Structures are given as structure tokens and as C-alpha cells.
Simulated assay, not measured.
Amino acid sequence: MEIAGNAALVVVDVQQGFEEEAYWGPRDNPEADQNIALLIDTWQATGRPVVLVRHDSPERNSPLREGHAGNAFKTYVEERRGKGTGPELFLTKSVNSAFYGTPDLDSWLREAGVRQIVVAGIQTNMCAETTARMGGNLGYEVFFALDATYTFDGEGPWGWKLSARELSRATAVTLHDGGFASVVRSEELVAAAK
């Protein structure tokens, strides 16, 4: 794996509101936060661009709504803001893809000559996956740091239920099989970035 000197780390929705277990239910991957922090540290130490994405939910009862404490970044992300030697972008969105946020992510990446992105964050099968898919569609080489993401148990039509682990595996298979992204581990990215 080769990671470009200007590959951007896109950290999706690592917000306090995702700690509200009563709202979201059971989650997977308890090591995700540690891995996200490691990726941010590595990207900042090597001067690579970091994009911090915040979801401003339009839903009245969402823990991620503006004005609610849950809208804020988790403490370990907030403490790292502005600490890198490379460029940093903060953007907000109200839909799944970070490419539909403000300011415009695609324009920012293209102006910087970025062709590779690494996606990490929450939720694996929602905003992280959607951002990765769209990045692939837009022509970026996308690396999806599966162990630096997590999600929650879900329920679909007809009473179908999948565990968080099953949903994460489905995301990994979809991104890999569909050619949207290379699904990798954080340690591989860190080793390649150093």
C-alpha cells in the first residue's frame, strides 16, 4: 500500500451524541476511537491534510442536532483540532455524505491536488460508507479504515435485524466487491504513512 504525501484523512462524525447508548443501541468495535485517534495523530505528525466532519442533524430528537451537547466532537478529536502541521478542513453536513457538506469537500481536495482519501469515523454503514462510495464515484482512490469505524445494531424492512458486526462486515464486502474502496486496517495505514 502506498499513501501519498498529501492523502487526506476524512474523519466522519466522531461526535459526543454517539455515546448515547439508550438512543442508538449496541455497537461494535470498541477499539474504534483508539484507532481514529491514532490515524489523526499520524496524519498530523506527517503534515498530511485532515478533514473533520460534523453531522448537524435536522431531526428534532437526534443526539447530533445543533444546540445539543451531543453535536460536539468527542473530546479526543476536539483536543487534536488545529494541532497538525498540514492543512485542516472543518465541514458540516446534514446528510450522509461528507461530499454534500459546507464548505465543499471535493473542491477543497481538488484545489490541493489530493487524489487519495482515507475514511474513518461513525457510522460504518451510514455516513462513513456513503462518503467512501461517493469518493470512489468521484475518482478518488479511497482507503476505508474499517477498524477505525463503528456502528450499531439495525432493523430493516419486514423485521429483518442485523447486528452491528454484521452491518460492518456487509459494508466491508460492499466497498471491496463494488470497487469503491480498499478496506484496510489502521495499522496498515500508519505503517504506510510513516
Rank of each mutant, 00 (worst) to 15 (best):
99 F>T: 12
81 R>Y: 13
99 F>A: 03
82 G>N: 11
98 A>F: 05
93 K>H: 12
90 F>Y: 14
79 E>V: 06
105 L>N: 04
83 K>G: 11
79 E>N: 05
94 S>D: 05
97 S>A: 04
85 T>K: 15
99 F>G: 09
92 T>G: 09
109 L>S: 08
93 K>Y: 10
90 F>E: 15
91 L>F: 10
87 P>K: 04
99 F>L: 05
84 G>W: 14
106 D>S: 07
88 E>D: 06
85 T>D: 07
103 P>S: 06
105 L>A: 10
78 E>T: 06
89 L>H: 00
100 Y>V: 12
77 V>I: 05
93 K>C: 11
97 S>E: 02
93 K>M: 12
99 F>V: 10
77 V>E: 01
93 K>T: 15
96 N>E: 07
96 N>F: 13
94 S>F: 00
87 P>N: 07
84 G>S: 08
100 Y>P: 07
100 Y>K: 15
85 T>Q: 14
106 D>F: 02
91 L>H: 10
102 T>W: 09
104 D>F: 09
77 V>K: 00
85 T>A: 15
84 G>F: 14
78 E>W: 10
104 D>W: 06
107 S>E: 15
104 D>M: 07
106 D>H: 11
78 E>A: 11
97 S>C: 09
77 V>D: 00
100 Y>N: 15
87 P>S: 03
84 G>L: 07
104 D>N: 13
82 G>H: 10
91 L>K: 03
86 G>T: 11
76 Y>D: 04
78 E>F: 08
90 F>I: 12
98 A>P: 06
82 G>K: 12
101 G>P: 02
95 V>R: 05
77 V>G: 02
108 W>F: 07
84 G>N: 04
100 Y>R: 15
87 P>C: 01
80 R>N: 05
94 S>N: 05
90 F>H: 15
89 L>N: 00
99 F>Q: 04
92 T>D: 07
79 E>A: 07
108 W>M: 05
85 T>L: 13
101 G>H: 00
101 G>E: 01
91 L>T: 10
105 L>I: 07
96 N>K: 11
84 G>I: 12
79 E>Q: 13
106 D>T: 06
103 P>M: 03
96 N>G: 13
106 D>Y: 06
82 G>M: 09
